[in-house]
């Protein structure tokens, strides 16, 4: 079951690399939130009930509802165009994402580990690097935020992998989630949108040497 969920998560990463519309990004983030909710629910067996409920609540409420809702609102509020405006064609993006996944599978091949499930490792590392790729290859600031959310999802999967042994780290991961999302989305994405209107990275080039 866990393997299936993590493989579906990997597929969402591929879809993300070729998504054409901003709305699709948000839909994928919602799917990922639900997937992570299920992974956490099936995987975290050693947790006490209250802690588990808190973490599950965070994944479903925060990752699958609040963050996508915020992004949606920012798109509507700032009349951001629907296209994702990548620098590179989708085919290349797909190729690079595939390369990322293949490399993380190869890397995981060298691990003989009793604690860490390889599926977790592959899903997490792929998500982190796909997120980074999204950030460097897209023009809109909002896409950068989406890329950051993908990185965060990858980090969350990794923290789940060691979660049964070190529950404190899962809680820290959740804290990072809330802290960074509130800082980035709540304060700045709104402000940046208001001041710079069409939120394009080319507008943010006032500071240079």
């Amino acid at each position: 079951m866990l393997e299936t969920l993590l493989i579906i998560f990997l597929i969402t990463l591929f879809y993300m690399s070729i998504a054409n519309r901003m709305r699709n990004y948000i839909k994928i983030l919602i799917y990922q939130g639900v997937l992570l909710f299920l992974v956490a629910a099936f995987h975290l067996k050693e947790f006490n009930v209250f802690n588990l409920i808190w973490i599950l609540l965070e994944t479903i409420v925060f990752k699958a509802v609040a963050v996508p809702y915020c992004l949606e609102r920012i798109i509507r509020h700032n009349n951001i165009t629907r296209e994702t405006e990548p620098y590179l064609p989708h085919f290349v993006s797909l190729l690079i994402t595939t390369l990322v996944v293949v490399l993380s599978v190869l890397l995981s091949g060298s691990i003989e580990d009793i604690i860490l499930d390889k599926f977790f490792f592959v899903a997490a590392v792929s998500a982190i690097f796909t997120g980074l790729y999204l950030i460097v290859s897209r023009r809109k600031i909002l896409t950068h935020v989406v890329g950051y959310c993908v990185i965060e999802n990858g980090v969350f999967i990794l923290s789940l992998a060691v979660g049964n042994e070190m529950p404190a780290l899962v809680n820290l991961g959740v804290m990072l989630d809330i802290f960074a999302s509130v800082l980035i989305l709540g304060i700045f994405a709104n402000k940046v949108g208001d001041v710079f209107h069409d939120v394009d990275i080319d507008k943010l080039s006032g500071l240079k040497d």
């Binding site: 060691v162 042994e165 960074a180």
Partner: peptide, 15 residues
């Protein structure tokens, strides 16, 4: 924010 994520990933691997 990205760098803090990286440090956290580092902490997870160290753990």
């Amino acid at each position: 924010a990205v760098s803090i994520c990286f440090v956290f990933v580092g902490i997870l691997f160290i753990s």
